[in-house]
Design a binder for these strands. Structure first.
Length: 885
RNA sequence: GGGUUCUUAGCUCAGUUGGUUAGAGCGUCUGCUUGACGUGCAGAAGGUCAUAGGUUCGAAUCCUAUAGAACCCACCA
């Protein structure tokens, strides 16, 4: 016991005053720091690095709480736990933010140039990039902060380039002029995964394209009228009778007056639109493929910002695509070439970052060949070397990995890992020989071929995910550390980045390290608001976790989120649900407070720990060990939500509702030695219980752990030994005795409640049984508020009494003058009906010969025993009911 | 169009390989200043497990179909 004046322990737990104190203590003592240590098993997690543009939201809370729970648990279980934190430079997201920031200052990215712009980016990162990390600390996460990493740290940067160079040399990386998803807002290519498809209510426009030297038309349908300025063909299905006669003829493209061919291609769906398709090879993926097949001219009509370039008639030049659309429609209408328009719903790809519709756009980009790299990554998941939780994500993963396309890894941005490729633009005489670019981690001094020092580096940077895919091992400082910590144990992440990140980390790990990056992947739930909408800034339904922590405490928030989040299902969250966690914390607090208040007068004495115990002590220890077994199984299976419920039920129901209530009997009426022995045991168990709670609620458990016993400097529950289940302490006979007591107490309470007997009124009860021991009777008297308890095998039912039957024990409560006979009759009647129903069901089952023959004999035996029990109970209830008449 | 998941009490969800009278929390109702806690205690009400078939001695659980919901992938110019 510490010297704290216990009278000053507040009635309610106050999180704000304890959280900062303990977090500071933990960091000072470096409990979260890990160094390789051959004598201990590592347990490693790398954080999914939040973007430096991010602020903490509820998703982070869930995700990081789960990681912290496992890291803290494993640390307490004796592993060398290492949780590496860090942040992601988030190329496109950050660049967008910085551009917007500079725009407010009237500065343009292009005017100040690359170097100056990058300075602004770093400044921005210094200023805002650490916010989310500071916020995370409020949650109590036990990251090894000495290991914090940033994806643009010098050595990490180099590692990313090294990976690029290696893949290039192995032939997996190539450059090509291809159609990519182009984001006109950020003027950069983006990957397929960065495109979100939204359903848009648009129109389908039907245009007449006049045939050359004829007064006939072909009518084509389109949702993108403006692209007609880049049309270089009209396609029809080869089997379409309507159009056979037009194949290989020419049409005159309106507004442009270009002669373009009509050709046949299987791709065209006869049923859709008019069955004739305008073909714009430069601005549509399918058109591009047809263009290649039929050797059509490919005319790019857009600038990088999707405004029209000089390849269109003068009046359209410089227009943005939306105004151009209006103008094209208007002009065609004026020329009576607009046949009709109809409403049409289609899906438009939007840039995840730019928020504008993407354009299929032809440009020079770097790609990574994926099929060969993906194969082993598919296998390790199929074979279960990496396990997904919940496992159904395996199918999604398999589907994607078996249909994987080449990855566009270049971005036309400046903030990021600049592609380590140099082109010789040197002396005129060598131009022909130096077509091969120089690919190198270090900046080359001169051209390998001609010696020219006039080299120009590729302007583009790598896709962010082409850096974070190395996160699982390049966060570690050197080869030796990687040997020790890699593969990591657990990855906790949201399922929406399964392709962006999870799959690519597996690919990278297998390719570069020849080993899986992690053994288990926990896919978190999606946090939604109370009515099931995704949390978003624009809806304003996303609570600020820091406010929630302020109001309810970090422990309450952590516990509540996990309590509400079953594996693999969405969570409907609202701030007031944090009452679950807050109330639970308060319950724990007060249980501790109760024990400590009693220990003020009766000091604990460890030499008495094994003395003067009774069945209730044995029972609670037995229950605790059951709980540990269930808890461990749940955690092993990543049923973390189930684990919270197991803890909650033990603490609240077993420990508080029963054990402490029973303990009061002895605390108020025994010798000091008995009291001391009891308190010693209770506080010891409470301490073990706190350890079980600690990974979930680190602050309150640490605070109480220090309050219940004087700890040495440097001691902490966070590095204490997690209790291991001891099967020898499971005690069926104590559990039996306890259950019997609980059932009798509950039955008497039920009668009291139903008969409206005030709690203050002490009553007499008769138990017809030889089984009830005197020590059990004491508890029954206290908890059921009975002052006179008559126990005998030949108790006669007193008249005008309420009754109940527990196993073969009959309970009578004489209530002369008080009893409402009608109420008691109804109560019994209800119970009888219930039992009769149950009995009828089981009789039917037992009289079915097929059941008796086919079912497992144990099941049949159990059913028979049950039937007899119920039969006895029913008869007794019936007698009691009759005696009231 | 393809795939995944889901549908159990008013609400949010448990329910392990089929075998107790289908459970919990919140909410509701009744009672309680019981010497840890009203952020609490005791008691109660409330469900033909989405629907229809099937397999089985036995189905909330397995199979099929239907309806509804969510998400993912691919796409129709």
């Amino acid at each position: 016991m510490t010297n704290n004046a216990l009278n000053e322990i507040p009635k309610a737990y106050n999180p704000s005053s304890t959280e900062a104190k303990w977090y500071k203590y933990w960091l000072e003592k470096k409990y979260f720091h890990s160094e390789p240590n051959k004598s201990k098993n590592p347990y490693t997690i790398v954080i999914p690095p939040p973007n430096i543009t991010g602020v903490l939201h509820m998703g982070h809370i869930l995700n990081n709480t789960i990681q912290d729970i496992y890291i803290r648990l494993k640390r307490m279980q004796g592993n060398n736990a290492c949780w590496v934190p860090g942040t992601d430079h988030a190329s496109i997201a950050t660049e967008t933010k910085v551009i917007a920031h500079l725009k407010e200052l009237g500065i343009s990215k292009y005017e100040i140039g690359r170097d100056e712009f990058l300075k602004h980016c770093w400044e921005w990162r210094e200023k805002y990039g650490g916010i989310i990390i500071q916020q995370l600390k409020k949650l109590g996460v036990s990251c090894d902060w000495d290991r914090i990493r940033f994806t643009l740290d010098d050595d990490y940067y180099k590692a990313v380039l090294k990976a690029f160079v290696q893949l290039y040399n192995e032939g997996y990386i190539y450059r090509g002029y291809r159609m990519v998803n182009w984001c006109p807002a950020s003027k950069s290519a983006i990957s397929d995964e960065e495109v979100d498809y939204k359903t848009v209510n648009g129109k389908l426009y039907y245009f007449r394209y006049p045939l050359k030297d004829s007064d006939e038309y072909i009518v084509v349908a389109t949702t993108r009228p403006e692209t007609m300025l880049g049309d270089t063909g009209v396609a029809v299905n080869p089997d379409d009778e309507r159009y056979k006669k037009f194949i290989d003829k020419k049409v005159i493209l309106p507004l442009v007056n270009r002669e373009i061919p009509v050709f046949a291609d299987e791709y065209v769906d006869k049923e859709f639109g008019t069955g004739a398709v305008k073909v714009t090879p430069a601005h549509d993926v399918n058109d591009y493929e047809m263009g290649i097949r039929h050797k059509l001219e490919i005319i790019n009509i857009f600038n990088e910002d999707a405004s029209f370039n000089n390849n269109v008639p003068e009046e359209f030049r410089g227009l943005d695509r939306f105004n151009a659309r209006k103008k094209v429609i208007q002009k065609l209408d004026e020329a009576r070439l607009l046949a009709k328009t109809e409403d049409y719903q289609n899906k438009v790809g939007y840039s995840q970052r730019g928020g504008v519709p993407i354009e299929p756009y032809l440009s020079e980009q770097w790609f990574m060949k994926m099929d060969e790299l993906a194969k082993p990554a598919l296998d390790v998941v199929k074979e279960g070397k990496i396990k997904f939780h919940p496992s159904h994500w395996v199918k999604t993963y398999e589907h994607w990995m078996s249909n994987i396309k080449d990855w566009c890894i270049s971005r036309q941005l400046w903030w990021g890992h600049r592609i380590p490729v140099w082109y010789c633009i040197g002396d005129d005489h060598c131009k022909l020989e130096c077509k091969q670019p120089i690919v190198s981690v270090e900046t080359p001094a001169e051209c390998q071929h001609c010696g020219s020092k006039n080299l120009k580096q590729d302007e583009d940077v790598l896709d962010t995910w082409a850096s974070s895919w190395l996160w699982a091992y390049d966060v570690f400082r050197d080869e030796k550390e990687q040997q020790y910590y890699y593969p990591t144990d657990l990855l906790v992440t949201a399922p929406d980045i399964i392709f962006f990140w999870v799959a690519r980390m597996i690919i990278a790990g297998l390719h570069f390290k020849n080993n899986i990056p992690f053994r288990d992947v926990y896919f978190t739930s999606v946090i939604r608001d109370e009515v099931g909408r995704k949390m978003s800034k624009s809806l304003g339904n996303s609570p600020d976790p820091l406010d929630v922590i302020e109001e309810y405490g970090a422990d309450a928030l952590r516990f509540t989120v996990i309590y509400l989040a079953p594996l693999g299902q969405d969570v409907l969250f609202s701030v007031d649900k944090c009452e679950i966690g807050r109330n639970f914390a308060n319950k724990i607090w007060n249980a501790g407070r109760f024990l400590m208040m009693n220990a003020q007068n009766i000091p604990v004495n460890k030499s008495l720990a094994d003395k003067h115990s009774d069945f209730s002590d044995e029972w609670i220890i037995s229950r605790f060990n059951h709980t540990l077994i269930d808890f461990t199984r749940a955690m092993d299976n990543y049923e973390i939500n189930n684990a919270t419920k197991i803890i909650y039920a033990f603490v609240w129901n077993d420990f508080c509702d029963w054990y402490i209530e029973l303990a009061k009997n002895r605390l108020y009426s025994s010798s000091d030695e008995v009291k001391s022995a009891l308190l010693t045991r209770a506080l010891s168990l409470f301490g073990e219980m706190l350890k079980m709670i600690h990974p979930f609620m680190p602050f309150i458990s640490e605070e109480l752990w220090h309050l219940i016993e004087k700890r040495k400097d440097g001691e902490s529950i966070s590095v204490s030994h997690f209790p291991a289940a001891d099967k020898n302490r499971i005690n069926p006979s104590a559990e039996h005795e306890m259950e019997f007591v609980q059932e009798i107490i509950t039955a008497i309470r039920n009668i009291r409640g139903e008969m409206n007997i005030p709690p203050s009124k002490l009553i007499t009860a008769h138990l017809k049984s030889a089984e009830v021991k005197s020590y059990q009777a004491d508890y029954i008297k206290k908890l059921a508020k009975v002052d006179e308890l008559v126990i005998s095998a030949d108790v006669k039912k007193p008249k005008a009494s309420a009754s109940a039957v527990i196993k073969d024990c009959e309970i009578y409560i004489p209530l002369e003058g008080l009893i409402d006979l009608e109420a008691e009759k109804q109560r019994l009647q209800k119970e009888i009906i219930r039992l009769e129903g149950a009995l009828a069901g089981i009789d039917k089952k037992l009289s079915n010969e097929k059941f008796v023959q086919n079912a497992n004999p144990d099941v049949v035996k159990k059913e028979r025993l049950k039937r007899d029990d119920w039969q006895t109970q029913l008869e007794k209830l019936q007698e009691n009911l009759n005696s009231l008449n």
